[in-house]
């Protein structure tokens, strides 16, 4: 018999209008318990307005050993970064 409860990934939306962000993980027997554990673990100091929990097993991750093939080619393609525009002074966030 498996001793530990399955792992769940927790996503917290800190304010309305923002996206849910990964906050960490909890162990729980099912989704309901995971939500409660997430509430207790990650929103104790009023950090959130909404919570998602996802079984960690449902996440398909990229293989770290392929990182070079996946991500590095982007590094020397400066033309993919919008760095050649001059930004008007009034614009704060871009």
């Amino acid at each position: 018999m498996r001793k530990e409860w399955p792992l769940w990934e927790v996503f917290v939306r800190t304010r309305n209008g923002l996206a849910h962000k990964h906050a960490g993980s909890v162990h729980a027997a099912d989704a309901r318990m995971a939500l409660e554990a997430a509430r207790d673990t990650y929103t104790r100091r009023m950090e959130g307005v909404s919570l998602w929990v996802v079984p960690s097993a449902s996440i398909t991750a990229s293989d770290p050993s392929e990182a070079a093939a996946l991500f590095e080619p982007a590094a020397d393609k400066v033309y993919r970064h919008p760095t050649f525009y001059s930004i008007p002074d009034g614009v704060k966030n871009i």
Partner: peptide, 11 residues
């Protein structure tokens, strides 16, 4: 029994 339960009871 579990870290999550520990936190919940302390809360």
């Amino acid at each position: 029994p579990m870290l999550e339960v520990d936190l919940a009871l302390a809360n």
